[in-house]
Structure formats: C-alpha cells, structure tokens
Design a protein around this nucleic acid. Structure first.
Length: 761
DNA sequence: TGCAGGACTTAGGAGTAATTTG
DNA sequence: CAAATTACTCCTAAGTCCTGCA
C-alpha cells in the first residue's frame, strides 16, 4: 500500500531518466563492432552521398529544424505530448519552446553525425506532426506470374486440363499448400474454390472441361512440380546463391531507405504483398479467399509536397499521391479480402518507431504512480450499486490481474475470438467458493485456459453477470465496452488504456524477476535465468506457440543421451570399486547409484549404445564411398582407394564387434577390463566431467520442455521495457548480444544507450 | 453520439541462415 | 562435411484505440 507513493509523481520519474542518460556512451564501440561494418558498406543508395546536391532547400530547412528545435526544454514535453494526441497545433501547450528556440547553425560534426541520429538525446517529442519532410522511392512489386511448363497441369476428373494463366496461378496457390493444414480445412477449400471458379470464368473458362467440383481437382502434379523447383533452388551452388542474393539486394537497395527530415532511415515492408490465398487464423470464415495482385493504381504514396515522385512501373500510374505529415506511413493500399488497409511503414529501427516505443514504456512507467490508487478504487467499486461500475471494476480487475486484452467487438466474418469486454457466458466456469475457469480463444485464436482463484467479490460479481436470463452466447459485460473502460482509465491518467496495463504488468513482473536473480554462475547460466524470468512474463501474457512436430522426438533423444551418460558414469564408478573395494565404505553416498540401474535397463542402454556406434560406422563408410565417386582419379586409383576404404571399414566393424563382446561380457560378469592408465584418480576425474555434462544436458532438456509451448519473443519485443534487458546485461555482465539479436539491438538502440546497471522500470 | 474506418501495435508461423553434431 | 538442430528474420494477420463523420 505504502509502496510507490514516494512523493515521486511524474517529474521524478522523468528526471531520473534524463539524468541517467548522458552517463554512458559506451555503446558507440559496441555498435561499431557488431553492425558497423555492414552499415558502412551500404551507402551506394541513391540517397546518402548525393544528398547534399540532391535535396537542397527543404533539406537545409529540415536539418536545421531537426537539430534546432531541441534545446534542453522542460522535461514535461514527452508526457504532455502524449496527452494531446492529434489535436490542432500544440502552440497553446508549449509556448515557451518556441521562444527558446534559437536557430543554431549546424556544425561540421553534426553534419557528419547525421547518419546516427540519436533522437533520444533530444527533448522535443512532438506528436501531432510526425515528419517535416519525407522522401522515398516507392515500393517493390512482386514479379509477374510465370505460367507453368506445359507438362504440369491441373488434373480434373482424372484428365489433365489447361487453364488460363490467371486461373492457373490461383490453382497453383492452392497446390503449393497441398500438404499443409490449410488445404485440409473445408472453409479454406470452399473459399479458395469459389474464387478460383470466378477467376476462371472471368478469363474464359477451362477449354478442356467444365470445372465445377473441388473434389475432382487433383493438384498433385502441380504440387510435385513446386517441390522439384524448391529442390533445384536448394541445389544451386553456394556462390551462385550468393550472387543471386547480392543482385537482389542491389536491386532493392534504393527502396530500403528513405529520407525522413533529411536523415536516412530504413523502410520496413517496402515489398508489396504478393497475391495468394488469405491464411486467416483459427476458424476464420474468409480463410482461403484469393488475395488479389496489387496494382500500382491501387497504391497511395505519401511523401513531401516537393519530394520527387518515384516513377510508377512502366505503363502504370500511382493511385494517389498524398502529403500527409500527420501519419507515419509511406504507402498504402486496400486489400480485397477484408477490405482493410495495408501500410508501408518505417522500419523497427527508425527514429519514429523508437520514439513511440519509448513513449509507450514511459507511459507504462507512469502507471506505477497511479496503480495503487486505481487498485484501491476498483476494489471498492466491485461492490458498487451501479451495475456499470461493478462491471467496470470487475473488468479492470481481470485486465490488471490476468493481463487480459480489452476485447473489442468483432464482426461476423472474423474468427470468434474474445478479450475481456467481449467475454461471453460460456467462457467462464465458476467453482465455488472463488475459483474461476477461463476458457476462451484470444487473439490469433490462441486458447486462454486458466483455473484461478479470484477475489471473493469478483467471484460474486461474475456470478451476477452470469445470472439468468443470461445464457450461452450472451456477453458477460453488457454495460461496458473498451471505449467506456478506457475513458474510465483516462480519468486517472491521460493516455492510460487497457493495453498499458499489460505493458505495465509485464515489465513490472520482469523487474521483480530480475531482482530475484543472483549474480553468479557462467554467462550461459545467467542467460538461462534471464530466459526463465522472460518466461514468467510470457506466461502472464499467454504468449504461446504450437509445439513443433519433432519436439517429442527431440526430447526422447536427449533423454536417451542422458541415460547413456548416467550408465557410463556408473560403469566408471564400478571400475573404481573394482580397483579398491574399500572406497565404498569411505563414501557410501558416492557409490550408491552403482546399483540403481536395473539389469534390463542396463542391457537396453548397452544395446542402444552399440547400435548407435554401428550406425555411425556404416554412415561413415557410405559417405566415404560417395565422396570417392566424385573424385577425379583413374579407374585403378579408384579401385585401390575403394579397397582401402573397405578394409578400414572392416577393421572398424571388427573393433566394434570386439567392443560389443567386451561390453556384454562385462555386463554378464560384472567385472571390467581396466586399462593401466585408468587409475582411481583418473576415473574420478572422468566421473566429474560426465557429471557436469549430465547437468548441462538436463538443464538443456528442462529449458526445451519449459519453452516448448511458450513464445518468449513476443514479450521481449513488445512488453518488457528493453531498458530492463539492458540493465540486466550490464549488471550481470552478460553481453547484450546474448539477449538481443542484431535486429533487436538496432530496434532498441535507444535503450542500450540510455540504461545503466541501476536502471529500474 | 455512436460507429465505421484509419492508423498504429502486437502476434505466431513460415522461411532462411547459422551453428552444432555425428 | 553433410545433416540436424537451433536461431533469427520476414511476413502478414489480428488486435487496440482514436478520430471524423453522419
């Protein structure tokens, strides 16, 4: 209760942030090592070098503006900015800023530094206008469809049929998925087939047959052709692969970057989505529908008024050109399946994305200062006379405690998934006295199943919300929806919404978990602990993944490995005893396990070990023979070599037989053949070695098991304040590379530079 | 004043590259 | 050194939340 209220409202939080910032400038060098070398290579783009001549006036203007408008202004700006989202100018808000704003001349250094613009060292995070100037090269379109060779056909009613290219393309989309779950999904089949028939009709139909029934379509020939193509692609030489890749990169280079306020920044998804079959998740009513090819005419570009308009593809026009600097997209088009809009945006490592990430986490940190009051309030409100208030309070409880999403209304032609406000009668089961079982499909049709104890009053309320005449299919919360809920949250803190609770609770959990970690062990052990902390967050947020097909097999394999190691260890210990029986008395515990393994078990393991060894020998021989086939030798040489190999192989096999005999004999008699070098000391060392290996492998197995159903990345990327990860890295001396991949390091550059080992969420 | 739709974040899986293993 | 395994990136669907409009 008396926790976070340290007289530290927003200012203190912010001040802390600001002061912690300038202290560390290390990451400069880190960056240099890791990504630097590649970064330097890239300036072949049309932007960058020629910048200075290319974009004269407005460039100057923006540059000066970019650097100029950030004197060390009030710390208020970040948070107050988010208070006034996209209203008219912020003039009324921060008049002072304008005044202090003396146009600075930019120094040489700044000009050179331009590439690595550190927005987080600036203070002005205005968010009405998102850019001053924006220049880019448009988008890349997927290649045109290439008809299949004439011997590859759709088989209809047992006969190969020809299709107009447009229809063949659609059939091909399905054929490519033939062995996936999609192709077995009746909805997918139905939607695909309907659209396929339509395209077929539009293009003159099939000359060879009247296609009317999905069941009579046989896509296997097409499928096999695609498989073969894949194989062929895989088989091309590595150099050739590299060359193709480089060529592609060169071609795409100019689309990869844009000029944002005169600075070079990366674009995210500059490739227009290719046509295909819509792969809706879960029981999506529209899954399988044809996603049509996007034409330049469908595309709206967004860039500066005076920026050059990228040329549309030969013989085409752009749909529309816009100059809207209140939005952060470079291009958009409307997609035909759901009628929603697709955007081409800045990359994750761009300053704009970084800023909004930063704001998101700062908003969540702000919630720290209100959470006690909010919790107190909703606990009281749980008993409110007003139904709406009760629902409000109960929903807030669920969001706060179980990290549920807000749960907006969904239309009929989407998958039936829910969040808090859209929970229905059938999604919760009440078990008195106060246990609730949640069972529903959330975002992406991921099942949320939890049996939990809740506050008694919450339990009572849920029972009331389920009372008749309510029945399955009815909303639990009938008086509220996300907008009501969010309005309620905003009364505490502007900008506070349901999703902020998820961010807050996730980061808070991570902080708490990190606080529990002791700074000991190897780097890898610490990484494992970090992942364990990460995992608690992922579990809180219900971030799941489907267990991979070969998970079970993988686990079994590791288990066998462990068994074998244990057996070897036991054998070593027996050897020790054989040399000195008195050892057993000296350390009974140490030798206890010698008798733990049952005879049957041991026999099985021995056989398995021998079997594996044998397989290895056979495989090796096969490989050697194969290799010999490629070698450029005369017939005689080859024959000779072959003989040698065969001899080697034979001797290995004999050795193996020998080993087999030894093992079996040892197993039968219980006495071991001990080499003179295997002194008791040596054996003991070996035991130690094998023990650490067992420990490591077991740890690895546990990690594998624990992670099999949990997706750690989503929380790492979206919910855990990256400064926590950086703090962990610095405090525990774990290289950040072990925690963030290259792309994440770029995305979170701001965090890597601004958090130290004492940073707290 | 409510709701459709625009703009943005969050999400898991497919595909590919890198690393380990046998 | 190839195959298996794991790590990481790319892709795009599916949410949230807000605004503007009727």
């Amino acid at each position: 209760m008396s926790s976070s209220e340290e007289e530290t409202p927003l200012n203190a939080v912010k001040r802390k942030r600001v002061t912690s910032k300038p202290e560390l400038a290390l990451s400069e060098s880190e960056d240099g090592l890791a990504a630097g070398s590649e970064k330097v290579k890239t300036p072949t783009t049309s932007f960058s070098e020629d910048e200075s001549e290319d974009v004269p006036l407005k460039k100057r203007k923006t540059n000066s503006k970019a650097t100029q408008s950030r004197p060390r202004v009030k710390k208020e700006s970040p948070s107050s900015a988010s208070v006034s989202p996209r209203k008219k100018n912020q003039q009324s808000k921060e008049p002072k800023i304008k005044k202090e704003d003396t146009p600075r001349v930019k120094t040489e250094d700044e000009a050179e530094e331009e590439e690595k613009y550190k927005w987080w060292e600036q203070q002005d995070l205005n968010d009405e206008i998102v850019w001053d100037t924006l220049e880019h090269n448009g988008v890349i379109f997927p290649p045109d469809y290439e008809p299949l060779p004439s011997h590859v056909k759709l088989i209809y009613d047992k006969k190969p049929v020809s299709l107009p290219p447009a229809a063949e393309e659609v059939a091909g989309f399905f054929a490519a998925l033939l062995e996936s779950d999609h192709a077995k999904n009746p909805t997918f089949q139905k939607n695909f087939f309907a659209d396929f028939l339509e395209v077929l009709k539009e293009n003159g139909g099939c000359p060879d047959a009247e296609i009317t029934e999905f069941e009579k379509c046989d896509f296997s020939q097409m499928f096999e052709y695609f498989q073969k193509q894949k194989e062929e692609k895989k088989a091309i030489s590595p150099q050739e692969k590299k060359r193709i890749k480089q060529e592609k990169e060169k071609m795409e280079e100019k689309y990869k970057f844009c000029l944002l306020n005169g600075r070079r920044e990366q674009v995210g998804n500059f490739r227009v989505e290719p046509p295909g079959l819509f792969r809706g998740r879960g029981a999506h009513p529209k899954t399988g529908k044809l996603k049509k090819r996007v034409q330049p005419e469908d595309i709206t570009l967004n860039l500066s008024k005076d920026a050059p308009i990228p040329p549309p593809p030969e013989g085409h026009q752009w749909g529309e050109i816009k100059h809207d600097n209140t939005v952060a997209w470079l291009a958009m088009w409307r997609e035909n399946v759901l009628g929603s809009v697709k955007y081409v945006r800045f990359a994750q490592n761009s300053s704009l994305k970084g800023m909004s990430d930063f704001k998101k986490f700062e908003k969540a940190r702000e919630l720290k200062n209100y959470i006690d009051a909010i919790r107190k309030d909703y606990r009281a409100k749980l008993k409110s006379e007003l139904m709406m208030d009760r629902q409000l309070a109960t929903a807030t409880y669920l969001i706060d405690v179980f990290a549920l999403r807000a749960g907006g209304e969904k239309s009929e032609d989407e998958a039936d998934t829910v969040g808090c406000c859209s929970l229905r009668y059938e999604h919760i089961f009440l078990k008195p006295p106060n246990t609730v079982v949640f069972d529903f499909l959330g975002k992406d049709s991921i099942r949320f199943y939890q049996e939990v104890e809740v506050d008694p009053q919450v339990f009572k309320n849920l029972r009331i919300f389920k009372k008749s005449p309510k029945k399955p299919g009815d909303n639990l919360f009938d008086r509220i929806d996300p907008s009501v809920l969010n309005k309620y949250f905003q009364s505490y803190l502007p900008g506070l919404t349901a999703k902020v609770f998820r961010t807050y609770n996730a980061s808070k959990t991570m902080q708490d978990q990190i606080d529990l970690i002791k700074n000991e062990g190897t780097v890898n052990e610490k990484v494992v602990k970090f992942n364990a902390a990460n995992r608690t967050v992922a579990i809180l947020c219900n971030h799941q993944r489907t267990v991979s097909k070969n998970h079970e097999a993988g686990v079994q394999k590791i288990n066998e490995k462990i068994e074998e190691m244990i057996w070897r260890k036991i054998v070593l210990k027996r050897m020790m005893l054989q040399q000195d029986k008195s050892l057993r008395k000296k350390d009974f515990k140490y030798f206890e396990e010698v008798d733990d393994m049952s005879k049957e078990e041991e026999q099985k393991i021995i056989e398995r070990v021998l079997q594996k060894e044998k397989e290895k020998i056979e495989k090796r021989y096969e490989r050697e023979l194969l290799k010999l086939g490629y070698e450029e030798l005369t017939k005689d040489e080859k024959a000779k070599k072959k003989e040698e190999l065969a001899a080697d192989h034979k001797s290995r096999l004999e050795k193996h037989k020998e080993l087999e005999k030894t093992y079996k004999n040892e197993f039968k008699t219980g006495t071991y053949e001990i080499k003179p070098t295997q002194t008791v000391e040596k054996l003991q060392q070996q035991v130690e070695k094998i023990e650490t290996r067992i420990k490591n492998t077991s740890l690895q197995l546990k990690d594998k098991e624990d992670n099999s159903q949990v997706a750690l990345n989503t929380s790492k990327i979206n919910y855990i304040d990256p400064r926590l990860t950086v703090m962990f890295s610095k405090k525990f001396n774990v290289p950040i590379e072990k925690l963030f991949t290259k792309t994440l390091r770029e995305k979170f550059a701001w965090a890597i530079e601004s958090a130290d080992e004492n940073w707290r969420f």
